[in-house]
Amino acid sequence: MFDPYILQQLAIGLSLGMIYALMAIGFTLIFGVLNVVNFAHGEVYTIGAFAGLMAISAFGPPLLVVLFIALAAGAFAGFSLERLAFSPFRRFSDEASLKSRAMREATLMSSLAMSIIAREAMEMIFGSQFQSVDLAYLINKPINIGPITIVNGDLIIFAVTLIMLGGLQWLLKKSPIGLSIRAVSNNALGAKYCGINTDRTIIITFVIGSGMGALAGILVGLYYGAIFPAMGFAPGIKAFVAMVMGGLSSIPGAVISAIILGLSESLSTSFMSSVWSDMVAYGFLLLTLIFFPQGLFGARRDRV
């Protein structure tokens, strides 16, 4: 009934979607709390990949340790990013200025500037070429399931995304940190009056979101065996698309949209040349913006 080719494409699309999802979660988390777009998220992803790569070439630890090193590097990058590019613009803590357009545009551009600096610095240090990755670490050993072939990386990415998503939901809904994150995202000033340290909460949000982005980076780097300074740009835009499609502040919405994106991208390659598959993502973005401006799964907003 099902063509094995289509099934294979579905499997590829699912793992692609999971990668986008992993990145979109961090993106959406940061947007949900601060209501600003973090354009440097793609660079955090690259930093994660490079940190993992450096760990591998320095002392060759087991894969799990590499993942944790990438996570730590991403967390640190998120912390510095927040301190450098976001906190200087939170001069006033009242509601209006926190959500004002000036604030949003200033942080948008400062995060863009940070991303330029980070990418160019990495290009200067490592060169713009693909880095060679130790073959033993690549997660692309094939596994046959019936008519289709997947690689062990698919399973790892799937598992990591599920763990991350579950862990995040637990953190947001059950833990005191999650409570303060949700409070700040709902009403920063109110949270402050209730004795929540808003600055610390925002830092924690950045650390969590960026850690997840960096983890996505090293996983994808090992999955495709391609680590290079500009690698964060394309998935960054895809994650952005997923976030907009999902309704900007809804994490489950972003994950579902990311999977839809991945699936449609890989299925589209059976109809057209693969160089055009990015067109599908941008087409989705525009269609969503035009017909469902508040996103497919988002809460209603007054004006978009």
Partner: peptide, 9 residues
Amino acid sequence: NIIVGVMMF
């Protein structure tokens, strides 16, 4: 290129 970024920031 880094200087462009730093200038922007």
